[in-house]
């Protein structure tokens, strides 16, 4: 049972325009993300899903538009003020983006060392805690990123993203490159962490199963703008691309699986 998302935007994007050379990727895009929800962002290749994420976290400066996070206009902030905001979100990049010269534990300790003056022992304990929260075995702490499998690298990246106990978690294609079982486990992990740590999750994905499994609302990038709604609303949308995406063979399979799971849950006497 998903609680209705409280109507208080934690991220608000207005009139966003992104151009690369002559190509306009976003043209007057508006988006609001509410505190405590999981928003899934989908769209065809090249519609600028990752660009949108990178623009919100400040890695890409938009041509026009405003971006407010925690009620502050990010584009107007000085460097030091930005850092205070950046402490309050965590980012998981597509390939994990772990620092390859550091072990997993050291990777997690990088932001802790940068922002807080913690005793060595406590820092190790917090690193171990995050490793556990991300569902990695304890011996992963001393391993280097090159020694990890793709799925473990993502979990380690998630552990680092969680290092500072962020309020918002940005995920770029969290399940890409994972097999179906690992992807489902990762979806579940994100759901668990989101609920127990009270996170707001902004998730770029192309995995239709993730949308059904974890997302409270779905944002679809079409025609250089974005359409947002609950999954039911989006499923009823008659935009051709959206229809194709959700009512194509894969979309039908995912929604059938979801409906089956829901029926099972309903018939469960407990």
């Amino acid at each position: 049972m998903k609680p209705a998302p409280p109507q208080q935007p934690i991220i608000s994007v207005r009139g966003l325009v992104n151009r690369f050379g002559a190509e306009t990727v976003h043209d007057g895009l508006d988006l609001e993300v509410y505190a405590g929800e999981v928003l899934g962002v989908v769209g065809g290749s090249g519609t600028g899903k990752s660009v949108l994420l990178r623009t919100i976290i400040g890695l890409n400066r938009p041509a026009e538009g405003t971006i407010e996070v925690f009620g502050t206009d990010l584009l107007a902030l000085a460097e030091s003020e930005r850092r205070e905001i950046e402490k309050r979100w965590g980012v998981l990049f597509q390939e994990g983006a772990l620092f390859s010269s550091l072990t997993v534990a050291q990777n997690i300790e990088v932001p802790l060392k940068e922002f807080y003056d913690l005793p060595r022992g406590l820092m190790d304990e917090i690193a171990a805690l995050k490793i556990g929260l991300a569902g990695l075995p304890g011996d992963a702490a001393a391993k280097f990123p090159a020694q990890l499998s793709g799925g473990m690298r993502k979990r380690a990246g998630l552990a680092r993203a969680l290092a500072l106990d962020p309020e918002i978690l940005f995920l770029d294609e969290p399940t890409s490159g994972l097999d179906a079982i690992a992807a489902a486990e990762f979806d579940q992990l994100i759901r668990d962490l989101q609920q127990s740590l009270g996170l707001t999750v902004f998730m770029v994905t192309h995995d239709i199963d993730s949308l059904f499994a974890v997302c409270d609302r779905v944002a679809v990038l079409v025609d250089k703008k974005i359409r947002v709604g609950t999954l039911d609303q989006i499923l009823r949308d008659d935009h051709p691309w959206i229809r194709n995406y959700f009512h194509g063979p894969r979309g039908r399979a995912a929604s059938a699986a979801q409906a089956g799971a829901a029926r099972l849950a309903l018939s469960d006497p407990a």
Partner: peptide, 19 residues
């Protein structure tokens, strides 16, 4: 309560090895 549960599941006292 959910946070405590999650941390109880994830935390451990075994020391972290640093090569």
């Amino acid at each position: 309560a959910p946070l405590f549960e999650q941390v109880r599941a994830g935390g451990s006292l075994s020391p972290v090895a640093h090569p």
